[in-house]
Design a protein around this nucleic acid. Structure first.
Lengths: 350, 350
DNA sequence: TTGAAAGCGGTACCAG
DNA sequence: CTGGTACCGCTTTCAA
């Protein structure tokens, strides 16, 4: 069975391989890194030694000798939101923590959440200064082509938050938004003990794939499991103030049978303001754990929160870009971003 | 403000420090590692250079030169359960993944979940073969003393799953079980739409601190928020079969007003068996995402699951043991284990 | 097609 | 108390 691998106690090194195969260090290295200029017979000898000794390359030492550094950029929409701020904070934190892992992070913001601008930004990335990019972008042909060009230049591309399945991105890091919407619906239906009534849905940009998916998942579960509650058409506002001061008061003055609100967008400021001053007894479910939403949950203004961990997303993106450029495998389980549910009871401290 | 740190582009190395301070490499190393035999004035010169150049030590290179290896052991109760199996699987997976991070993991099982045996196992750990231990143990004076002795021998000790707050353990890796119980209660109360009725609680060992805490958190929230549902005294069984074949049928034959079951223990096998064959319409909430519980959730036998990520726990334990032995800081946010809530809708695929 | 030797950023032993 | 130097495991010229 295990006649392979002589357990000498110590892990074999390139020197052991060289000696065992009767070649020099340089040749072992050539084989290890698939460099040209080695006879097939020699390659075989080296590989035989590698297998027999059970050699595993020490990546830390290799990176040291190679003076390898990873230069990654996070391409983010200029749109401000508490969640993007949190993401930015996590990038900065990692950026600092990663200096002694030879990994450099930088953030680049494009003015708007716009295919054209994002594609220009992607095209401006040079492979001699950038090894990988994590991009938050809508799924459009323009973006798809820019992603393809970027990868062709030898830059790893990972999609953040919203997937680009039609693009040749290397990985997607984020949640399944259809499931997230479905989860919100299940919570909404369970927490609302009314016999009947309506549910209001607040959405971000109707153009954004993730919001559509959330809405879709939400509607499906509401219809299937909670038919006594009917879901109103989405309302979309350009900014938080407009929502609080105009749209919401308008809707509530017209209808008195609204039992719950599902806010699938990122900004909750206006909503929280409105709820704080309103006397309506509502079940409100929103997305993303932020200082504002945490406080709303704690005060009972929000009933539940669906979230994705910004720190995890950033760390995952870095690991995946690294494993892409190194062409090494990664731990799929560790990189899976969870759809987190927060109630007041399981809110992490601090 | 930032007159410090000359941005030469490249990160300064020990050589730069030595040159800048006008001393040798060896002296820089002595200062860096707080080794004796350096004049205060020289120490100051070196530290000045370190600050001026903004030196950050390359841990990978240091570990290479030092030929440092980390040898950690996971001390687990022999008690089998799906969750412990998952934990074991994650340890094995990490063990493999960590070979080229110079980290060796091994598992040691004690026959029973017993203070005495655990303390004997801890005492048998030698600091020349072990750098750290992650231990799952009940909080007793015996364990506390063994933990103290182990740390005195220079071995890092972290508590897994159940905290040992009165022990001098270096870290606790796990969830707040009181909050976990509270979360279960909130879900139970929300998902049970009955006007009145009783809730059955199944517990593991009544001796285990985490089960007591879960029960406590559960009772508190039930009493405060759902007074129309009354919680029955815990029932505890020695094994899963006994539960399914004797205890549960007995209870249900005596009471017809049971609306929900909260299983705070780890084993769900017997419970699932019983529920599968029973016709009672119940809301059941259990702990830990495992193949069995996942399937039960998917089939609607369980309404919700409270869980903690075994992979995360193992990775966290390793990182914390490492940062303890190296006496370097760690990222508290990353090490915080979340109280995860799973509904059918947000179950991760696969 | 192959090998010798000089590092990468640190550590640690030995001499002075 | 301080400096010189070999070396950790691997990569990379430069010659042969």
């Amino acid at each position: 069975m295990n006649k392979i691998k002589i357990a000498t106690g110590a892990k074999p090194t390139v020197n052991d391989i060289a000696r065992h195969a009767g070649v020099s260090l340089a040749t072992v290295d050539r084989v290890l890194n698939a460099r040209p200029g080695v006879r097939t017979v020699t390659i075989d000898r080296v590989n035989k030694a590698i297998n027999e000794l059970g050699y595993i390359r020490d990546t830390a030492a290799a990176n040291l000798a190679r003076r390898r550094v990873y230069r990654f950029v996070f391409l983010m929409p200029g749109t401000r939101s508490e969640f993007f701020d949190e993401l930015q904070a996590q990038i900065d934190a990692q950026s600092f923590a990663l200096v002694n892992e030879r990994t450099h992070l930088r953030t680049q913001r494009v003015a708007r959440f716009d295919s054209r601008e994002i594609s220009v930004a992607l095209d401006s990335l040079q492979s001699d200064t950038t090894d990988g990019v994590a991009v938050i972008a809508p799924e459009t042909p323009t973006v798809r082509d820019a992603v393809a060009r970027t990868r062709e230049r030898g830059i790893a591309v990972v999609a953040l938050l919203t997937d680009l399945p039609s693009s040749p991105r290397d990985h997607f890091i984020g949640i399944d938004n259809t499931s997230a919407g479905a989860t919100a619906a299940k919570l909404m239906g369970s927490l609302t003990h009314a016999e009947s009534g309506r549910i209001l849905v607040l959405t971000g940009s109707r153009l954004s794939r993730d919001h559509l998916e959330r809405r879709h998942g939400f509607d499906k579960v509401m219809a299937e499991q909670f038919p006594h509650l009917s879901v109103l058409p989405s309302i979309e506002s350009r900014d938080d103030n407009e929502l609080a001061e105009k749209l919401l008061p308008e809707v509530f003055s017209m209808r008195s049978d609204i039992r719950g609100i599902y806010s699938s967008a990122a900004g909750n400021n206006g909503l929280i303001q409105f709820l704080g001053s309103s006397s309506a007894k509502l079940i409100t479910i929103a997305h993303e754990l932020t200082p504002l939403s945490r406080s709303a949950l704690q005060r009972g203004i929000f009933a539940a929160l669906i979230s994705q961990d910004a720190g995890h997303i950033v760390r995952s993106a870095v690991r995946l870009m690294r494993s892409t450029v190194d062409a090494v495998p990664f731990n799929a389980m560790q990189e899976r971003i969870r759809i987190e549910i927060f109630l007041k009871e399981n809110l992490p401290p601090c």
